[in-house]
């Protein structure tokens, strides 16, 4: 058991280090800390300029939560895409590895990056834009950031499969983040979205977690938010399972078509 856990940790660490190309000081600080803060400031100031000064908190919280999938998608999709680009995918397919472990271990060390990006955004929201923490339920904040990071991680792992198939990560990242930005209530409340976009919003990660997060800033307790928390977790689990299944399907398709792995 200890050996198996050690191997999982090694897979997570080495796939993170070997395939996450933003893992250098310049790129890491820019993407995990600076970019989320810039987005929070831009969107919040835009909201204020548009005459919605009372919505500043909602914008800051929305963009802080959105910073989680924004950083996770970039990192995780790189890891999947470069596996194919570097020609190492075939070595995974020919290995004895447990495919589920190999699949989700690709996201494991990205998880803290989502938390860091969100926490930094909230901190600078307070420092620069007067985010009001006075009524915040702190335990709910912690739990919600953990849950949102989990569900967004699962979505990114799911989309990672497409970056293998397409041998491209920038386009899937753009589509994923764009979809979340539009449909999950980051800027526009879900109930004000046109019908089909609202429906999409209900089945993507972030929507329920973000709604709960805003309520936590209004003082709602964990007990009040349990429905949204469970919903967010279930959505994440669904993507995790669907992604793992898709990962196996890709391998089967690679064997059938002979096109996905290219080291050999």
């Amino acid at each position: 058991m200890a050996a198996a856990l050690h191997n999982i940790a090694l897979q997570a660490y080495y796939s993170y280090k070997g395939l996450f190309l933003w893992l250098n000081w310049t790129a890491y600080i820019s993407n995990v800390f600076i970019a989320p803060v810039v987005f929070v400031v831009i969107v919040t100031l835009t909201g204020r300029f548009a005459g919605q000064s009372d919505s500043a908190n909602a914008y800051i919280i929305g963009m802080a939560a959105y910073a989680i999938p924004a950083i996770l998608s970039g990192g995780i999709l790189q890891s999947f895409c470069y596996e194919r680009t570097f020609g190492t995918l075939s070595l995974i397919y020919a290995s004895r590895s447990n495919r589920w472990v190999t699949y989700w271990s690709k996201g494991l060390l990205h998880y803290p990056n989502g938390l860091l990006a969100a926490a930094t955004s909230l901190l600078f929201g307070w420092l620069l834009l007067d985010l009001d923490f006075s009524r915040l339920n702190w335990p709910a904040l912690v739990v919600l950031l953990l849950v949102i990071s989990f569900s967004c991680l699962c979505l990114c792992l799911f989309v990672g499969n497409f970056s293998i198939a397409l041998r491209e990560w920038i386009i899937p990242v753009g589509i994923t983040n764009g979809l979340l930005l539009i449909t999950s209530g980051v800027v526009v409340p879900v109930d004000q979205l046109p019908g089909f976009l609202g429906e999409i919003g209900r089945v993507v990660p972030l929507t329920h977690g973000l709604s709960a997060l805003r309520e936590a800033f209004e003082g709602a307790s964990l007990g009040d938010l349990v429905d949204d928390i469970v919903y967010e977790l279930v959505v994440g689990l669904c993507y995790l399972l669907a992604g793992g299944f898709l990962f196996s399907l890709l391998e089967a398709n690679a064997k059938r078509t002979g096109t996905y792995e290219s080291a050999i």
Binding site: A4, N7, Y14, S95
Partner: peptide, 14 residues
Amino acid sequence: QNVRYFGALNRLNP
């Protein structure tokens, strides 16, 4: 690290 990683992928005892 490459060798260790492939060892982990192949579920060798660390």
